[in-house]
Write a protein that binds this DNA or RNA. Structure first.
Lengths: 184, 184
DNA sequence: GTAATATGTATCAAAACGATATATCAAATT
DNA sequence: AATTTGATATATCGTTTTGATACATATTAC
């Protein structure tokens, strides 16, 4: 992977809006972008250390600490903002998928069709659930499109809705084909 | 990541059909499944060594060597077939996305809308190209559906076509919204 | 002839994952 | 009042994967 650290951009992007701790960053990732990007503590904390050393972020006082245990808050620096911008302005982007469901389906021929049907059903259930949540986000965001930031969030949510609905259409077609095969 | 090595299943799945070398495996991955799963030499060769040690695959003679340099061919063992099957029969699957395009869009608010339009255009061009190839595959596979294996390949190709077309529809909508914002 | 390209195996540093360790604090339970 | 539970919070470890590079042989092009 050598010399890239995409997690840096995730963190810088989030810090561009508000100061956050490593724990907060993880929460934001899980809540808002996890359907198209994930991040673990094992990459977040080392990235914060590295970026502090490199001057892209800096530690700030834990203001408004009303209870809860002490936390280390980070702020983006002007250098960090520059790094974020130049990444944004570079239209090259790597979109990397790992669909274990498709991997199993691709090799489905070594087992009975029913096995593949089960795998598709499990996938479909997960997708249905996530789609529900995504639609809820999309709906809420559609009401605050006057705020430019929210428009960007709305567009990513819409991407999710559009693709997840495509997944479900495919599930129906694929299952039909496999059930036909199963009856042979 | 600890204790999983998904690349093992990719290799076992491919070896279930024919004996292959590490180099061949890489080619098969790039040609057939790269739109939903990737694999590098840096994971393939260590996996082959580990699985040989564990008895899931074994080295076989390089039959039909008509020129070309010497290669190390591998075959799946009965133990390997068992491992492949029990993975297939487990309907739990992790589908993990890394859409750098969406990441950039999510943080689009820190730059001008034109930047995001450029990013979407770059994405759209890539998708259009891949869709072309996927449709070609799908078309060819639709003619040989009598072979059960080909049906599974057809279904994965169809998944790609369905989702890539959804991507393109979304691109058009997103661009429109951003162009409106750009004129403000 | 020789330069460029394709074939082939292998390893390395860096990045990311998922699990785990450790600790603090608030709320609920006993 | 003491204890357990669970949320908050930081950090690190072993494992997997990536992408780059090294190295060597065979084929094709000029």
């Amino acid at each position: 992977m050598a010399k890239d650290r995409k997690i840096d951009m995730v963190i810088l992007g989030l810090l561009a809006h508000e100061n956050l701790s490593g724990y907060d960053i993880k929460k934001r990732i899980d809540q808002s972008i996890s359907f198209f990007w994930k991040g673990s503590f094992g990459s977040i904390y080392p990235s914060l250390s590295a970026m502090t050393r490199e001057g892209l972020v800096e530690k700030v006082e834990d203001s408004e600490r009303n209870g809860g245990r002490e936390k280390i808050n980070y702020a983006i620096t002007s250098q960090g903002k520059e790094a974020l911008r130049s990444w944004l302005e570079d239209s090259r982007a790597v979109n990397d998928m790992k669909y274990e469901t498709l991997l199993k389906l691709f090799f489905g021929g070594v087992a009975e069709p029913q096995i593949s049907i089960n795998n598709i059903n499990a996938f479909e259930n997960e997708v249905r659930e996530s789609l529900h949540i995504l639609k809820f986000y999309q709906d809420n965001l559609s009401k605050v499109l006057n705020n430019p930031d929210h428009m960007y969030y709305y567009l990513t949510a819409s991407f999710g809705v559009e693709t997840y609905e495509a997944y479900l259409r495919w599930c129906t077609k694929a299952r039909k084909m496999l059930e036909k095969e199963n009856k042979k």
